[in-house]
Design a protein around this nucleic acid. Structure first.
Lengths: 350, 350
DNA sequence: TTGTAGGCGTTATCAC
DNA sequence: GTGATAACGCCTACAA
């Protein structure tokens, strides 16, 4: 009863009706220079009237390309990533591209499989933010060799060269830590992620550098590597930290969720924030302004990163593209809120 | 220098190398029943060795279909929607489909344009959640007539028949309101959305019915229609409500963001929650558990809705599909948290 | 069981 | 300026 997928109008139909060749119609529709003004108008007029819409699939096959950009991310439903995708999609729309998305759920195996599927669809280019699990990149390397332009975003590979759109994670972490130090913190813990992931490693290095430059001791007990950086994980880890002989007086969390977990623990245990525990997160997710006290954080320009990734991909996918690796590095800044603002009384209502 | 998009292996290449016809290869790869066991294995082996991957574009053109599901939503980066998409994507992956997404940004014009683009890509089916602005549905009707299966999700059209995956908004709103009434609220305001959108209209009707059945007066001053249901809008509206001669003692907000705005206002003005103002939101976004006090809400099973929408779409897109309109209605429930829990002391730590 | 041939809807390269 | 024609890679009746 279905498959009444109505047969759609083709250039043949138009050609027939106008008594011209299909190739003429094709040219007319593309404003080819060597086409008669009159025929062009006639074709376009009829196309409009018949509701002609070019069959992108056929065109893609013929052109050996496609107008679809593949996006592979760990999870779609996370504030940072959904905003990133939103940025990609918006820019893609602007330039006439479609966006096909795929989530690895932070699993290496899924990532590999999804890359294959995406490439099978003959995507124009691929934007990737790596799965937490991923430690080697053969699957990506292979498709790059195969000729698919790839741009890495945010979670980029540590060893594989390639185009990337990132922030300066080292610098951002340094600033976040420095901020806590400026507020008088002496024992600052870090909630970090998998160290094989470049972004977490660099954040950790930035943190260490800040401590070092300020003459603060580095205490291994305060260096925490979280698996998934969830709220619960942050909560439990804070609990453990407060069982130490010398408790931390500050936490730099490499995402906001885990920091909120820490806040939750502190509140439930009457640990005054920021007096006894100052906190700063990362990403500046919406929750930062909602949690009580509000959470300081580092901005992480998700939408711009998405847009930039798309732009770089388009650039790379042109025939004249340079062979060298593009690098776009966006800036971040510290957003200071109540969770870390110790210096004298402020006038803010909360 | 680019366009070194390596020529990929085709069934012709394999056929050549094995001295069989391309059609044989094609059949072998699809496990066609009438294929020799030996040739089949030989073909598959070689395909593996040569890294053959079927050209989906060509196959799609030939088959007059595609393995891509179009998803059109207002915004990607909203908790409810990104989870919905996540659900769609996960199920799609399971069944071997790709997901192509597109955001209308709540603009009617964009919605129309995006529908066209998606259909141009010959999507297998389209899942739509309508833009806030959308009041008529010619653009959708047209593609349904054209034969593209369409499934509406969540924000469904009020007048156009079609397949839909929804919750019982009337019932959910009724329960939310009833809950506030049970807590002793007498003057309950509603933060609603555009009334031409069925979901908001039904939620409002559910609210009105609850008041009515409990013998409470309906006060037009307390019925607020918000444009975008943002936190700020919720804040400002609450401010206005508290300038009224008789202030509300409860707010049912049709999303969580606006409710959080109300909480913010209440806290800044020392209005005790829930004693003087009890609140319940809608969607049960993560912020509900983060805001202080925690926000009661109605669950809104985003991921399941996404998955169901995909399943229905696949069902509808088969040749044997029934002609009647499918309806999947998922259940919701009240999640009671501190923002509305008035009845005696509870043992919860917060 | 396998091969042949045609076509899905375009675009591009030739001719005319 | 326009018209044949081939090709993109695959699938499938039909023939063998």
């Amino acid at each position: 009863m279905n498959k009444n997928r109505k047969k759609r109008v083709t250039i043949y139909d138009l050609a027939m009706e106008l008594n011209v060749a299909p190739s003429t119609v094709s040219r007319a529709l593309q404003d080819h220079f060597s086409i008669g003004r009159e025929t062009r108008d006639a074709v376009k007029e009829l196309a409009r009237k018949r509701g002609y819409r070019t069959n992108v699939v056929a065109a893609n096959l013929r052109m050996q390309t496609s107008n679809t950009i593949g996006v592979l991310v760990p999870w779609i439903n996370r504030p940072f990533i959904s905003s990133l995708i939103s940025g990609v999609e918006e820019a893609a729309q602007e330039f006439g591209y479609n966006v096909i998305i795929s989530q690895s759920q932070d699993c290496y195996d899924r990532e590999v499989a999804n890359v294959k599927t995406l490439v099978d669809s003959r995507i124009h280019a691929l934007l990737v933010s790596l799965a937490m699990e991923t430690t080697h990149y053969d699957h990506i390397e292979e498709i790059i060799r195969g000729g698919t332009p790839v741009v890495f975003v945010d979670r980029v590979p540590s060893s594989l060269p390639g185009h990337r759109v990132i922030i300066d994670n080292y610098q951002a972490a340094f600033e976040a830590t420095q901020h806590l130090i400026d507020q008088g913190c002496k024992r600052i813990a870090i909630f970090s992620g998998a160290q094989h992931q470049q972004i977490y490693r660099e954040r950790q290095l930035g943190y260490l550098a800040a401590l070092d430059q300020n003459g603060l001791d580095i205490d291994q007990d305060l260096i925490c590597s979280l698996d998934r950086l969830t709220l619960d994980e942050g909560y439990r880890l804070t609990e453990k930290l407060f069982l130490l002989d010398s408790r931390p007086d500050g936490i730099f969390s490499t995402n906001d969720g885990a920091a909120v977990g820490a806040i939750k623990f502190a509140r439930q245990n009457n640990i005054p924030i920021p007096e006894e525990l100052a906190l700063i997160g990362f990403n500046n997710d919406p929750i930062c302004e909602i949690v009580e006290p509000q959470l300081s954080s580092m901005t992480h320009p998700a939408a711009q990163m998405g847009r930039q990734a798309l732009l770089q991909a388009l650039k790379v996918a042109t025939p004249e593209a340079t062979t060298e690796n593009l690098l776009v590095q966006l800036t971040t800044e510290v957003i200071i809120r109540a969770s870390s603002r110790k210096t004298q009384a402020t006038t803010s209502p909360e």
